[in-house]
């Protein structure tokens, strides 16, 4: 019995020792795992910090990319604009050259015929002096328009308002247009109130406006047609209607006729000479006077350009 008990005790002791050993090993493993877990936690914290940093730099990059592509777009636009301006400039140069050479051809031709014939017959003299004179007017109108354009582009239209008689201005313009009108057998008619029509404005500039409108009306008139200039006055404003019986302006082009260099299809199809400047300049001048310019047109019936000017002149600069 004692033996048996002893054996049992010994077995228990061995078991206890084994368990103790196992417990110690497990404790060690738990500690190790604990340490690993701590290390992993630290690593995770590190990683999420890194992720935040990455996200931030990603956002920065996206912003930068957006910025850059914005800059690329604006540069592309600017390059396009420069190209367009360049093309406009070379077109303008070709137009100026053509529009100056044409009247100069007539002036030079007429004068050399007159010089070659000594003395020319009275008919030849009057015909060819007339041609030279009209074409000098045409060159002057052209140069006036280019000078005004240059002023407009420089931002100084330079209206010098002073008292003037609008009827006198219109009569002067009509008198100068009689020659070119007669050549196309176009009659010019002025319907104005009797007596002077005083208003404050720049006479040279207004002359240039009505000269451009009359020039267009005559150029677009069919042979033998009538161009009417009708003047209406109220105590506050004067309205001038310049009406032609030309081909009319297509409705989709009417809003564009006052744009710089714009030439409508009736002008380009019929090869009516011009630069696309007259109406643009006229609008700038009329608006610098505090007035308005507009057009009403019907295809096949003609166009009426209407200028309204305040009689008191442009509002004083603020």
């Amino acid at each position: 019995m004692t033996d048996t008990l002893q054996t049992l005790v010994q077995a228990f002791d061995r078991m206890a020792a084994t368990y103790e050993l196992m417990a110690r090993r497990l404790g060690g493993q738990i500690e190790q795992l604990e340490a690993e877990r701590t290390a992993l936690r630290a690593h995770l914290a590190d990683l999420s910090q890194q992720q935040i940093t990455l996200l931030r730099s990603n956002q920065d990059l996206a912003r930068l990319t957006a910025d850059l592509s914005g800059q690329v777009t604006s540069l592309t636009h600017r390059a396009e604009e420069i190209r367009r301006q360049d093309q406009l400039k070379s077109e303008l140069l070709a137009t100026v050259s053509h529009e100056l050479r044409t009247p100069l051809t007539s002036i030079k031709g007429a004068l050399s015929v007159l010089l070659a014939e000594d003395p020319p017959s009275p008919e030849v003299r009057s015909e060819f002096l007339g041609i030279a004179h009209q074409n000098v007017e045409r060159v002057m109108r052209l140069i006036g328009n280019f000078l005004n354009l240059a002023r407009i582009e420089a931002g100084e239209i330079g209206v010098v308002p002073r008292p003037l008689d609008l009827v006198e201005v219109l009569r002067g313009v009509l008198a100068r247009m009689r020659g070119p009108a007669a050549e196309r057998r176009v009659s010019l008619e002025l319907e104005a109130p009797a007596g002077p029509l005083p208003l404050t404005g720049d006479p040279e500039m207004l002359e240039s406006v009505f000269s451009n409108l009359l020039d267009n009306a005559v150029k677009f008139s069919p042979e033998g047609a009538l161009v009417t200039v009708r003047v209406e006055a109220t105590p506050q404003a004067v309205t001038v209607h310049v009406r032609d019986r030309g081909p009319g302006i297509p409705p989709e082009e009417a809003p564009r006729v006052f744009e710089r260099f714009f030439r409508g299809t009736p002008a380009t199809n019929r090869r009516v000479p011009g630069t696309g400047l007259g109406l643009h300049i006229s609008k700038v001048i009329v608006e610098a006077h505090g007035g308005r310019i507009g057009v009403e047109s019907r295809i096949g019936e003609g166009s009426t350009f209407t200028v309204t000017l305040p009689r008191g002149g442009p509002a004083p600069a603020p």
Partner: peptide, 10 residues
């Protein structure tokens, strides 16, 4: 151009 027609013709 009417003026040039007259001139060149002449």
């Amino acid at each position: 151009e009417p003026d040039i027609v007259r001139l060149v013709t002449y």
